[in-house]
């Protein structure tokens, strides 16, 4: 499903990365995972970050979500200088601004699907308490899981778990959704369902950033940023061949 978008070039920068570098030290020596990354993403953009394994995709995602700090450079999201926040403030900020979808779903195995979604709301307090259950049910219905709300994650298929994870990511109504290889573990039919859900989110005004190695899904995205050896080697619109 291709979601029609207006021209992004006129929109203000919603996410800005300026000269972001990340260096890791290990027993084998120092390793530059990101080198002088510099780009912006507008609100409502549907962006794919692609590259081979080890290219720095996940590290870049960690910079955007505040999961990790850059060694050098600045990350500004919706006016917040993310790289300056400490862990506690980052957690609150992340809960309010970013919904994260992981490759392996990462649902809490001891909680039902509904409780997994509620848990995210209980942490952030962005949604009034009396509205949380209703909202969680609505989100699960939106991803087609309203019949499974009281099931544990292990009772669901991979695709269903990923949809539940997506519902959880949306629990606090964040303006940005990021996903790390969200379809890496799914078959093609389930992949299509998940990708459609992301597209619907973009249609609803969310900024969606997906890390993927699937080069052939270009038309789905507004924009494709390609990484290689920690550097941006390509930044093109999704409909460009």
């Amino acid at each position: 499903m291709k979601v029609e978008n207006s021209d992004m070039s006129n929109r203000p920068d919603f996410i800005q990365l300026r000269n972001v570098s990340k260096r890791f030290a290990s027993a084998a020596g120092r390793f530059d995972a990101l080198k002088d990354i510099d780009f912006s993403i507008s609100q409502g953009e549907h962006v794919a970050i692609v590259g081979k394994s080890g290219s720095g995709k996940s590290t870049l995602l960690n910079m955007l979500t505040g999961i990790d700090h850059p060694s050098r450079g600045t990350v500004t999201v919706n006016g917040t200088e993310v790289h300056t926040l400490n862990e506690s403030r980052l957690a609150t900020w992340r809960g309010q601004n970013i919904g994260i979808v992981f490759q392996f779903f990462q649902l809490i195995p001891t909680l039902t699907i509904l409780e997994n979604v509620l848990l995210a709301m209980d942490f952030v307090y962005a949604i009034p308490k009396h509205e949380r259950k209703q909202r969680a049910m609505a989100l699960l219905k939106q991803v087609g899981l309203d019949q499974h709300v009281n099931k544990l994650p292990t009772a669901l298929s991979g695709g269903e778990q990923q949809r539940a994870a997506l519902a959880r990511a949306l629990a606090n109504d964040p303006p940005i959704v990021v996903a790390d290889e969200p379809t890496g573990n799914l078959d093609s039919k389930t992949t299509e369902i998940i990708m459609n859900l992301f597209a619907q989110l973009v249609g609803a005004g969310k900024t969606v950033i997906i890390v993927t190695h699937e080069k052939n899904s270009g038309p789905v995205y507004d924009r494709i940023i390609t990484l290689k050896d920690g550097m941006v080697i390509g930044d093109r619109r999704g409909d460009e061949s």
């Binding site: 809960g95 990462q106 942490f123």
Partner: peptide, 16 residues
């Protein structure tokens, strides 16, 4: 440990 990472990723603060 890994669950702590997930909880933090979905908005749990250190005090949570």
């Amino acid at each position: 440990i890994r669950q702590i990472g997930i909880l933090k990723a979905i908005g749990a603060s250190r005090s949570n």
